[in-house]
Amino acid sequence: MKNLWILSLSGLGLSFSVIASSPSPSFNCNKAQGSIEELICQSEELSQLDTQLQPLYSQAIKQLNLNDAKILTAEQRGWIKGRNDCWKADDKTECTRVSYQTRITELQISAASINVPSPTYYQCNNESALQLSAYFYNDTLIPAVVFSYHTAHQPPSEPAIGFITRTASGAKYQAQHASLWTHQQEATLTFFGQPPITCTMSK
């Protein structure tokens, strides 16, 4: 972390230094509670992520009715609790970073600060009545997909959001209860404890 920038005027044989203050998080570091908030205050990267998150959260709240705003507020409190639980992690900084990155991505999507991509549709071969729709977000902080599925006899499922994870080929997105792997024209949807469902992009 560099807070000291050296500016040289070589032609004049002069040099001087400017002390640049580190970015501060959205909360008062003098009132930081717990080791994770203290860690955020000490980290330029984590402080920047915190200040990036707050306007997205405020924007999302303004777009909701009173009841939905209460739900988002409760979700945000739950997220803060989960972020602060990173004190249990072996790598506290990485845990906190990922927590911010996924939450910011969620808020970018819910606050509509990112253009909604065109949907991609899949027909699932071993579930002939099942159709999968996916919105691939590549302009969010981390790549993500919002997907849902339906059958001829069932309404669309609640949309799930998956965040990209490392994979040998293609792109794999991990949601709370399922994963979606895509490669070229194919996709594999896997629910925890269930056999994979293979799908092909609809023309």
Results as ranks from 00 to 15, higher is better:
Ser17Pro: 14
Gln48Glu: 13
Lys62Gln: 07
Ile80Leu: 08
Asp85Asn: 03
Ser133Pro: 03
Glu45Trp: 01
Thr188Leu: 01
Trp181Phe: 07
Arg103Leu: 02
Gln185Val: 05
Gln76Cys: 04
Gln63Ile: 02
Ser157Leu: 05
Ala171Arg: 12
Asn84Pro: 05
Asn126Glu: 06
Asn3Arg: 14
Lys70Gly: 04
Gln33Thr: 15
Thr165Arg: 07
Trp181Arg: 06
Ala160Ile: 02
Ser17Phe: 09
Ser169Asn: 15
Ala111Gln: 02
Thr198His: 11
Gln76Ala: 03
Glu106Ala: 13
Lys172Trp: 00
Thr188Gln: 14
Thr198Trp: 09
His183Thr: 11
Pro156Glu: 04
Tyr135Ser: 10
Gly13Lys: 07
Thr120His: 06
Asn67Gly: 04
Thr198Lys: 10
Gln52Ser: 13
Leu132Asp: 01
Ala178Lys: 03
Ser179His: 05
Gln176Ala: 11
Lys62Met: 15
Asn125Gly: 04
Asp85Leu: 01
Trp181Lys: 08
Pro195Ile: 07
Ala129Pro: 09
Gly34Lys: 09
Val145Ser: 10
Ser110Gln: 08
Pro156Lys: 11
Ile36Cys: 05
Asn138Gln: 15
Gly13Leu: 02
Leu46Lys: 00
Thr182Ala: 13
Pro119Cys: 03
Gln185Met: 15
Leu49Arg: 02
Lys62Gly: 12
Pro25Ala: 09
Ser118Phe: 04
Ser8Cys: 05
Ser157Asn: 12
Glu186Met: 12
Ile40Arg: 00
Phe27Pro: 03
Phe27Gln: 03
Leu39Thr: 03
Ala171His: 11
Asn28Glu: 10
Thr51Asn: 11
Leu189Gln: 02
Ile142Leu: 12
Tyr121His: 15
Ser24Ala: 15
Lys81Ser: 14
Ile109Asn: 00
Gln52Met: 14
Asn84Trp: 00
Trp181Met: 13
Asn138Trp: 14
Cys124Ala: 06
Glu106Ser: 04
Ala144Thr: 04
Ala129Ile: 14
His150Gln: 15
Leu4Asp: 12
Ser110Pro: 01
Asn84Gln: 02
Thr198Ile: 10
Thr167Pro: 00
Thr140Lys: 08
Gln63Asn: 04
Leu46Asn: 02
Ala160Asp: 04
Thr96Leu: 08
Ala89Lys: 01
Ala20His: 15
Leu46Gly: 00
Ile80Trp: 05
Val145Asp: 00
Pro143Ile: 09
Leu39Ile: 05
Asn28His: 12
Asp50Thr: 06
Phe27Trp: 10
Ala175Cys: 09
Glu94Ser: 08
Cys95Ser: 05
Lys62Val: 13
Lys81His: 09
Phe191Trp: 10
Thr188Tyr: 06
Glu44Asn: 15
Gln194Trp: 08
Ser157Pro: 04
Ala32Gln: 04
Tyr137Ile: 01
Phe192Cys: 13
Gln174Ser: 11
Glu94His: 09
Asn28Leu: 08
Gly34Cys: 07
Thr200Ile: 10
Asn30Thr: 15
Ala32Arg: 06
Tyr137His: 01
Leu12His: 12
Thr93Asp: 05
Ser22Met: 13
Ile61Cys: 01
Leu39Trp: 07
Ile104Pro: 00
Gln174Ala: 07
Leu46Ile: 08
Ser10Ala: 14
Met1Cys: 07
Ala89Pro: 00
